[in-house]
Design a protein around this nucleic acid. Sequence first.
RNA 1: UCCUUCUUAGCUCAGCUGGUUAGAGCACAUGACUGUUAAUCAUGGGGUCCUAGGUUCAAGCCCUAGAGAGGGAGCCA
Length: 487
Amino acid sequence: MQKMKRIKIAELIKGQADGSTVNVKGWVRTKRGSKGVAFIQLNDGSSINDLQIVVDLDKLGEDCVKLAHTGACLSIIGKTVASQGTGQSIEIQADSIEVLGGADPEKYPMQPKAHSMEFLRENAHFRPRTKTFSTVLRLRHGLAFAIHKFFHEKGFYYLHSPIITGSDAEGAGEMFRVTTLDARKPPLTETGEVDFSQDFFGKSTNLTVSGQLEGEIAAMAMGEIYTFGPTFRAENSNTARHLAEFWMIEPEMAFYELEDNMALAQEFIQYLIRFALANYPDDLKFLDEKLAKEESQKKAEERSEMGLIEKLKFVVENDFKKLSYTEAIEVLKNSNYHKKGKFQYNEIKWGMDLQSEHERYLVEKEFKQPVILFNYPKNIKSFYMKQNENEEVGKETVRAMDVLFPGIGEMIGGSQREESYEKLLKVVTEKKMPLDSLWWYLDLRKFGTAPHAGFGLGFERLIMFVTGMSNIRDVIPFPRTPKNAEF
RNA sequence: UCCUUCUUAGCUCAGCUGGUUAGAGCACAUGACUGUUAAUCAUGGGGUCCUAGGUUCAAGCCCUAGAGAGGGAGCCA
């Protein structure tokens, strides 16, 4: 058999049905046919669309498609012809079929039918071969690329913040310990504690929960930077919105104040969604239809008013609703939900942390669009956030912001940072934080401090919104959650 | 971690008030069919009813414990 250059299906279906001979390779989605002719639906991941291979059984013999079961990998040489069927405009008339890898249909778990998302998670090694999941992976790639494109075009620098951190002061939750000590009998100090001075780094280290503090180092020299990397939280969170290992984008900008930060957050998200709409129309159309089908099975009052693409366009075309925490409390207090006692936490008062039902009310019922909440009470937010000035005692707020999305909750959390050395030191002392591991962070305020701000965007939550997938475990190839690190 | 629901064929699920040999659709195999689009039609094989105890003449069904999963909540991105 002569060696022929392989052509990707995405490229092939864009071209003309001119009778030219090509070689395509891919995996069988499904096979069907009758006595004289068989049809193989082939996909190679380059596109959501399958390629239809037409096999003349009288010419090639019945045996040539015997092993072309769902999941098998084939290399096919044939002619590109205009399709006689209605599902596609171009197809391949096969001249030869080579089975690169068979897939025993009695044992191969994937079938040419709809599988539940739970089942696919348990078969994560074959999950990318499904239409839904390959679509999610293509969009995931596209959005990752668009993130770099956006920041590059704006003059931001991509900073690689460390994955192993010696700082336990980030305060963003439980951490995973990184150690080379013997787990069965670690060296102990005289007082019976584990002696981390004998550990690999000579101190206790963990996987990062945020690159923000290191990001600030770079922002105080390079101006505008962003990080984009894996992030780890050892919280025992069992929800459709949390992962133990996820990817986070954290821009950090010198000379930005809270308002600039909010404007950047909106511009950023809108840019990414616009990119997805422009570059992945087929994939989004498929997800749009899939979601519409799921919605039609729900009760009328639970159905969302907009389709996926409609929703994405709406977000691109409209400013986010900006609202201070104090205003949000008033809105909640005056809401019918509150008056009728519909909130589970129905005692709404200034200073409380908003429950997700409150956030959902604001986003999904009251404003029906993305909402940016800002100026939160000082007591419920992190130590590094800049405090507002001239406020009533007991009503102090910090320049924090959360970007809330329908169906997702918090997509972005960020703030203007406290740039005053004295004020930051005061908070660090009040909160009894370990000064010895924060010395370099405080130094940034001591030498050449500047107003600055930044935020963190959960990459998987963004993908959830863009794809309409309802579980975060279905937008990352290998989800890590409590009790689950298979694959 | 808490609340709640669930676990029956390869997959999705039904299984009545506890009663004899546990069902369906899809998938798979075989056959029929000259171009199908989740092809269609016919026939067939396929079960540790999540696990371990218990109640009962009798348990897929009731009780206890455990494991896993879904949904909701908390923590957050």
